[in-house]
Computed example of a mutant assay.
Amino acid sequence: MRSDKLRVKLISMTQTFLSPDQFELPSDSEMAILSHILRNKGAAQPDIVTATELSQQTVSRLVNGLLARGAVQSGGRIPNGKRGQPRLKLEIAPSYAYSLGVALMTDAMSVLLMDFAGQVVDYHYVEMPKMSRNAVFAQLDETVHGFLKRHPRAKDRLLGVGVGISGYSLDGRARYNPPSALDDWAMVDIDHLFTEALGLPAWVENDGNAAAIGESLLGVGRRYANFVYVFIAAGIGGGVISNHQLLRGIHGNGGEIGLILPRNMFELPTLETLLASIREQGIEMSSISEMLARFDVNWPGIDAWIERARDPLSLIASSIAALLDPEAIVLGGRLPAELSQKIIPMIELYDDARREEPRPLPKFLLSETKVDACAIGAAMLPLEKQFFASMV
Rank of each mutant, 00 (worst) to 15 (best):
D4F: 08
V8N: 15
K9P: 00
L10G: 13
I11N: 15
M13A: 12
P20T: 05
Q22D: 13
E24V: 11
L25E: 15
S27L: 10
H36V: 03
I37H: 11
G42F: 09
A44D: 15
Q45N: 07
Q45K: 11
A51W: 06
T52G: 07
E53C: 00
E53R: 10
L54H: 08
V63C: 13
L66N: 12
A68R: 15
R69K: 12
V72A: 05
Q73A: 06
P79L: 05
R83S: 13
Q85L: 04
Q85R: 13
R87H: 06
K89E: 15
A93P: 01
Y98L: 04
S99V: 01
A108F: 03
M109N: 11
S110W: 02
V111F: 04
M114D: 13
V120M: 11
V120K: 11
H124R: 11
V126C: 06
M128D: 06
A138Q: 14
D141C: 00
D141V: 00
L158V: 03
G162Y: 07
I165M: 11
Y168F: 12
P179Y: 05
A181C: 04
L182M: 09
D183G: 07
A186L: 02
V188Y: 03
T195M: 13
P201W: 04
W203V: 02
D207I: 00
G208L: 04
L218C: 09
G219A: 05
V220G: 06
G221Y: 09
N226T: 06
F227P: 11
Y229W: 06
I232Q: 12
A233F: 01
I236D: 12
I236F: 03
G239I: 01
V240Y: 09
L246Q: 13
H251Q: 14
G254R: 04
G255W: 08
G258Q: 08
F266W: 10
E267G: 05
L274C: 05
I278P: 03
I283M: 08
S287N: 03
S289I: 00
S289A: 14
L292G: 04
A304G: 13
W305R: 03
A309M: 04
A317R: 04
S318D: 09
I320H: 06
P326Y: 07
A328S: 14
V330L: 08
G332E: 11
P336C: 02
A337D: 15
L339V: 01
I343V: 14
P345L: 05
R354L: 13
R355S: 13
E357T: 09
R359D: 14
R359P: 01
F364H: 12
L365A: 07
L366T: 03
S367M: 02
T369N: 11
K385N: 12
F388R: 02
